[in-house]
Design a protein around this nucleic acid. Sequence first.
DNA 1: GTCGTTCCTTGGATCGATCAAGGGGATCGG
DNA 2: CCGATCCCCTTGATCGATCCAAGGAACGAC
Lengths: 343, 343
Amino acid sequence: MAWSGRLALTPPTLADVAERAGVSRQTVSNAVNNPELLRPDTLVRVQDAIAELGYSPNRAARNLRTRASHLIGLKFNPAQEGTANAAMDRFVHTLVETAADSGYHLLLFSGSTDDPLGGYDDLLRSTAVDAFIVTDTYLGNPQATWLTSRRAPFVAFGRPWDNPGATHAWVDVDGAAGTQLATEHLLDKGHTRIAWIGWRKDSFIGEDRRSGWLRTMHARDLATTGLASRVEDTVASGREAASVLLDEAHPSAFVCASDTLAMGVLHALGDRGIHWGRDVAVVGFDDSQVAQVVPGGLTSVRQPLEEVAVELVRALGGLLSTPPVAAPGVLLSPTLAVRLSSG
Amino acid sequence: MAWSGRLALTPPTLADVAERAGVSRQTVSNAVNNPELLRPDTLVRVQDAIAELGYSPNRAARNLRTRASHLIGLKFNPAQEGTANAAMDRFVHTLVETAADSGYHLLLFSGSTDDPLGGYDDLLRSTAVDAFIVTDTYLGNPQATWLTSRRAPFVAFGRPWDNPGATHAWVDVDGAAGTQLATEHLLDKGHTRIAWIGWRKDSFIGEDRRSGWLRTMHARDLATTGLASRVEDTVASGREAASVLLDEAHPSAFVCASDTLAMGVLHALGDRGIHWGRDVAVVGFDDSQVAQVVPGGLTSVRQPLEEVAVELVRALGGLLSTPPVAAPGVLLSPTLAVRLSSG
DNA sequence: GTCGTTCCTTGGATCGATCAAGGGGATCGG
DNA sequence: CCGATCCCCTTGATCGATCCAAGGAACGAC
């Protein structure tokens, strides 16, 4: 067993292994990093010594020499409570596992809410991380240009909406395709008056999702005027918006930019004694926990967050290899989790 | 501005700063780590140079020399989807911020689901982290004894249920106090037949929460026989359990070990056309997002996760200081988020 | 002028791994 | 028998900060 018993205070070093195996330090180093350079029998001998001593290379020393930390920075944004970023969980977990497969660990950091660059600078200058995964790109992406100018490797979860010419690596989910799926699903169910409740116009993501609904409706020559609403991403706003739409436009179905808004719609329908799922269909976005546990279940667009994580790590792997391999943008398609709220 | 323009490839070193400030390396090091040793005016001069060059000490070098990484390992467990670990988000975020205040960053790692020790060993041996925060302690805590034997500093979120004699630092939330709050709240509302739906007997946490309900009922000499049920933590199980209880024991209120189970109760009530919140009261546990967005809102016990994070970091600070300060166990009290589901 | 502070410098060693050359032994052709 | 050529392994320097110990310059007190 690994260094049992004795004080665990000083882990074995490369030199200890070397002595035990009767070889030089460099040979041990090679055994770890370039095994093919060793004769098979010495390799075995060294590996045995490594196992017996329970040796793992000291990270700090390795990092110092190789000028790499094998850490990837991830900004853990202040979660606005009530928002459906519970999905973050699914995402981060896959990220951790995938990164580990490539020999990387995730380093979490935070920064002031209002400063999008907060935290990045320090980590970069102290060479604490090799690269970043940037996820806070709802409204533009100043981090991207800044990081690029710093020559810091990074991959973004989110398209460079405000700068289509950007050449950095990114991965995103096709929101429009998601709402198109949702809308077509409702059309298949026989609905024709399908309303949209989304976010305010300054949200790139919101407008993207809206466009999927819009184009699908237009493709069937269905009316959309008066059937759309743009509000804050809260349950109360969704409820209010649904109420107005029900009064004025009499839709038989709703597609929403988020599960939060969809929950608002369910409230509004409940207020009027309308049986949702039977009388009026509702589809949300994000496939949050809420969508899954609400009675009957809420049909919702599900983002392939696991795939996103995998693609992000793949892209990072390219950037961090020598020579770096530039990664193109990747756009993934969401799926639809169908439940009773859509009939 | 910090090293603008030129290649960002080689960040400035201590020696660069020393030269620019016209002092020795040692003095710069002191300016950073022991400012009180410098005369005020030289300190300013050095700090100016640091700012001008945009210097941050190289982490790897510092880590190597000081034998510390200023990283704290946190195992990011495979999230069983549907469980209310959306709360993790709130917790982790505070953890990140609080740790940063003490100069620490969080390192995420994962391990095989079945092996509770997975991942810890490697990080420890390669001196990649200074300490761990252990959160996966639902069923016993083998990590604790293992880490203790390795002399690895760590703090646990969760009491050492299976080993009351354990001396390591821990922080936990008083689940019994939470369900007591919930039960008393219902008693105040006039309910006397209050049912319990919890987890199976092998869950320490589940039994703890159950005991809060039990002792409160007994304190008022109210019957509890036939009013309790122990099931899996799923919506379906909660629904089924509630259904049986409604038939056989006719409770007017439910206290549940989780929001998931509480959602199951709401389903069961909905099935029978019982208006929950008016006819029958329901209280959940965790104050998850679901509790907040369900129509009318689900009354739920809220864990002070932010406080937990703060206490964990405080305890770690003690363990990592020299000399180490042993931290006692800390038990925090939850609060009750009252919403319409309890009338 | 001597002694003692205070503040900073100097030169070195050190942490543990990797990089870049260099060296010993076997093998082979001449 | 000698030198060229591999192959496999070793040697010394290096990454950048910190620790250590000794020493020098300026200043005030006696």
